[in-house]
Amino acid sequence: MKRHQLVLVGLLGLYCLITLAPFYALVVRAFTPTVQSTEFHLWLPDRRPLSMNARLGDLATIYSIDARAFRQEMGIKGYVNPQLTLAQLAETYELEPERIRAWLEPRVQYNGVLSVMEAGFLRSLLATIFVTGVSVGVGGLLGIMTGSALAGFRRPWHLFTYNLYMLNMIIPPMMVILPQYLIMTKVLGLDDNYLSVILIHIKGGALSTMVFTSYIATIPKELRESVQMDGGRHYHYFFYVLLPLMGTPFAVFASIAMPWMWNDLLHPLVFLSPAKYTLPAFVAAIGGTYTTNYEAIFSGLMLSLIPILLIYLVFQKMFVRSAVAGAVKG
């Protein structure tokens, strides 16, 4: 290899490292005890073993341990003072200390991951996939329809409509959250319903309109005329010709919109109840006011990144195709 090639490879390697470093740091932090979370760790730090002097309430507060589940697991009926230490609990309720330890130890050892799992991560993940999937799918379809109507700006009102859509982009979501909330709950009766978040995601999307309008404008009008000559109606054109051509712009749209919808924090927080939170709201709700289980938060972040990474890997071919589509003319 020549020297400049070596330098190039070196620089690329460095770039990869810089790009991947945050992911690595996130994984490490997801397993770093909260007490050590203010220091920077290159590798998982050691953790103190569970002490029988720990109080149940403190464990609940610091490690987000579900005291209710603990009581059920230990077969304790009725109210338990959370200020009791584990040793006191064992004595009062005549429990084997080992049994207590066996149940609690892993929850402390892998606190972050287990807390978010027990707090309902999978349910939240399903909800997120549902909301994001429907939003991307329906939003994309609506964008294609809008785009096929507006492409080329053949009438003056087309441009006007397009600009209206674009205006959407400059309105901060926080500014319209109140009227939106009122419309969703009072007019549409969608309080605590995933549809409300989906509606917000797909309403007058500036991005989808922009992507599909500009892409559809590059499709020769002869294709539509040809369908017309062949005796097809507009919907034939839409389903047989236009839709199959939308893979590329859809990949562009999805790859930009999907992370945004996936990571939307504000709307699920406002429109949904905690039991239905999507992932970002779910992770945000892990935090406290004076104490924060950082380990759980970082675990939540890490776990909520994995599915979207998987989605990218699965659909990679589509995204790559969208990137090279400009180079090879069909």
């Binding site: 020769p220 002869e222 294709l223 040809s226 199959p244």
Partner: peptide
């Protein structure tokens, strides 16, 4: 009349073949 009712067929300069078929 609609194009199809006129009994005309057309060949376009860019052929207008349906790319995904």
């Amino acid at each position: 009349l609609e194009p199809v009712e006129r009994g005309c067929a057309m060949v376009f300069q860019n052929y207008a073949l349906y790319p995904h078929q």
